[in-house]
Design a protein around this nucleic acid. Sequence first.
DNA 1: ATAAGTGCAAAGGATTTGCGATGGG
DNA 2: CCCATCGCAAATCCTTTGCACTTAT
Lengths: 154, 154
Amino acid sequence: MIIFFIEVKDLPESWKDVFHRFNKKATPSRRAILEVFEEKGQHLSAEDVYEHLRAKKKKVGIATVYRNLDLLLRMGILRKVNFGDGREHYEICRTAQFHHHLICTQCGQVVDCEGMTQEEEQFLQRLRKEFEQKQGFVVHSYHIYFYGLCPRCR
Amino acid sequence: MIIFFIEVKDLPESWKDVFHRFNKKATPSRRAILEVFEEKGQHLSAEDVYEHLRAKKKKVGIATVYRNLDLLLRMGILRKVNFGDGREHYEICRTAQFHHHLICTQCGQVVDCEGMTQEEEQFLQRLRKEFEQKQGFVVHSYHIYFYGLCPRCR
DNA sequence: ATAAGTGCAAAGGATTTGCGATGGG
DNA sequence: CCCATCGCAAATCCTTTGCACTTAT
């Protein structure tokens, strides 16, 4: 027996389609950068991305890396995070679970904090409303940074 | 009638004493920088501090500003905050109420968010424990950034 | 074909550093 | 008086930009 009906919920749009939707070209550089984020995952600096590309024998200039990190940011594919080390870091949104960061103030190590749930939702929903009323802002996202000492530094 | 007993709870240590405790000199530059934070308050960049000093006719070199912002940070008098605008900002801890930040992603305007209370305490207390168990970190502080659109940009 | 994207090298902006001069304890 | 601190200018680090060449559509 053959099942003819296959439920496909939220089939993710291909990167090519995403670029197309933004009237941007799906160039090799851009694909390669996204590949790095999909493989290496979290919070990479421009230099990190550049090094990973070199390691993979993909020749992409550092300027192109910067330009495309910014583009991907504006397209909503990456988000920018900052750990106070003097450079910007980027994370991919789609493949990574939404999370926050725990930063060692001694050595700079950064750990992702995933899996905060309902309680967080409720807490932030309340704050969001408060800001929208008190300050007149529309809040569309937030980020929590925790600071402390990692196992080795404590 | 004279009241002989005056209750003085938590008399704040003078800046001079704080410097002394850290074996650092209470120089005019340092006093002037602290004065700026006490008067102008929130999230100033090194350049901001430098400009305010000039406006007050205090001649302090920009290098000295940077060196002392870092010193005051390490002494726990200032904390560093980052709004993604390519420069670091600093806030004074003692005189300012603990607060978070609401950032307009369009124009970069930053608003302080004060007065989150019990609920926040509880919520973050739970997370703190979770991290200490799961990751082995000691968490000593945290910071929440909210992103959205300000009244003018929405 | 052609406008968008790229690489390179130079420019820009923020922060740090070297060093001789200064002044707080 | 002496070492920490300062001012200045040069150095460094991250990021952006100008321009001629290449390429995805």
